[in-house]
C-alpha cells in the first residue's frame, strides 16, 4: 500500500491558493448579477487575508492585534 499520509502545502502554495480563491470570488461578483457588491467583497477579502495571515502566526498574534 502507498503511504496515505498527507503532505501539507507549503506557505507559498497556501498563499497562492488563497489568492486564487479571492480572484474567483471577485470574478463571481464582478461578472455576476451583483457588481455593486464588489467594494464590500474586496473589503471583506482584505480582512479575510489579514485574519488568515494572523492565523498563520497565531502564537504571536495577541501581540500584533493591538497594532492593527
Amino acid at each position: 500500500m502507498s503511504d496515505p499520509t498527507p503532505t501539507p502545502p507549503g506557505r507559498v502554495e497556501d498563499v497562492g491558493m488563497r489568492l486564487g480563491t479571492l480572484g474567483q470570488l471577485l470574478r463571481l461578483f464582478g461578472r455576476g448579477k451583483r457588481p455593486w457588491l464588489l467594494p464590500l467583497v474586496l473589503l471583506l477579502s482584505v480582512l479575510g487575508l489579514v485574519l488568515a495571515g494572523l492565523q498563520a502566526v497565531q502564537y504571536v498574534a495577541p501581540f500584533i492585534y493591538p497594532l492593527l
Binding site: 494572523l54 492565523q55 497565531q58 502564537y59 498574534a61 492585534y65
Partner: peptide, 9 residues
C-alpha cells in the same frame, strides 16, 4: 495560549 490568541482574534 492559543485559546487566548483565538479569543483575542
Amino acid at each position: 495560549w492559543l485559546r487566548f490568541s483565538r479569543l483575542i482574534g
